[in-house]
């Protein structure tokens, strides 16, 4: 900042472009610092995302050169691909069911433990955070085994609620709710930690001031003091939760198999894998991934916009 000010005098003699070039030359070292990372970031994130838009307008199988087909892939996806519609619907259901729930759960638990003594808080943090770092969702195979030895089945049989074991991950009625529940179980991740830190960071004297001003219970405190003070964390947490809610094919594939029975938990990432890694229809697969990109970015921008309006 200070450098910019020091040079402000000479700025009057230059056009905007000249001034920018001057700044670039003067601060070239900044680019050197950023360059190595940016090359990698571009190669593995930016270029793939941008390229998928262009490739999605072609027909391409990696062997012959791509041929331009315009929007044919998109037309086919929406009008002539029933599986895509199923995958889109399931992806949206997963996202809507797990995203907001995991967000609220992360905040609620962080808030619950905020006033505990540090040791207790650390232990409870570990308990709630552990499932997300281990990605040990295969554990649930013990719980929902389809024979009578599966934990849940054996209880239900013993209590006389069912007569024969339920085929949990092979039954259209149970696959989706189970996968949603399991991903919620392991969804208290980065957003959760960010909320814990954010709550701890709220200046204690503000609570005292609020109490003097007539705040009488913890709900009012939450609403008038805590939330407005944590807006940045709430925003970051939202991004983490939404991205997590969309990037969520692995759990399903592992537990329910791919394709899941009657495609009842078939998601866009499954469809993407099918066309990208099995059939090598790269153009078509790119169209799927570009739609997934639009969904992720769109919902993130929408929600962060909404959060930024809170309290204004």
């Amino acid at each position: 900042m200070s450098k910019k000010k020091a040079k402000d005098v000479s700025r009057r003699d230059m056009t905007k472009l000249q001034w920018t070039l001057h700044l670039m030359k003067q601060n070239w070292i900044g680019y050197v610092f950023v360059l190595p990372f940016m090359v990698l970031f571009a190669a593995f994130t930016i270029i793939p995302v941008i390229a998928s838009l262009f490739v999605s307008l072609t027909s391409y199988n990696l062997i012959q050169p791509p041929t331009w087909v315009g929007f044919a892939n998109y037309v086919q996806l929406f009008l002539d691909d029933d599986l895509f519609i199923i995958a889109l619907k399931n992806t949206l259901i997963f996202a809507v069911a797990t995203g907001p729930a995991s967000y609220v759960l992360s905040f609620a638990v962080a808030w619950f433990i905020n006033e505990l003594p540090p040791k207790a808080r650390a232990v409870i943090t570990l308990i709630f955070y552990a499932p997300s770092i281990c990605s040990a969702y295969t554990i649930f195979q013990y719980f929902f085994d389809s024979d009578a030895y599966g934990l849940v089945n054996s209880w239900l049989l013993k209590l006389g609620l069912i007569n024969s074991p339920i085929l949990w991950f092979r039954d259209v009625r149970y696959v989706m709710p189970l996968c949603i529940a399991i991903s919620l179980w392991m969804s208290l991740g980065t957003a959760f930690l960010s909320f814990i830190a954010g709550l701890q960071g709220v200046d204690k004297s503000q609570y005292e001031a609020a109490a003097v001003d007539g705040v009488t219970n913890r709900w009012q405190e939450l609403w008038y003091v805590t939330l407005p003070n944590m807006k940045n964390q709430l925003m970051f947490g939202a991004v983490m939760s939404i991205t997590g809610a969309f990037g969520f094919g692995a759990v399903v594939t592992q537990l329910a198999g791919n394709p899941s029975v009657d495609y009842c938990a078939y998601t866009l990432s499954n469809h993407l894998e099918e066309y990208g890694n099995v059939r090598w229809e790269i153009g078509y697969a790119s169209a799927i991934s570009f739609i997934l990109f639009l969904l992720c970015i769109g919902s993130n921008l929408l929600i962060t916009k909404m959060i930024s309006k809170v309290g204004q």
Partner: peptide, 21 residues
């Protein structure tokens, strides 16, 4: 750009082209 990249799971969205690269 970096903030926007947090909004997508890069491995899934760009996975196909990433493989080609």
């Amino acid at each position: 750009l970096i903030v926007k990249s947090l909004m997508i799971s890069a491995g899934t969205v760009g996975g196909i082209i990433q493989f080609i690269i």
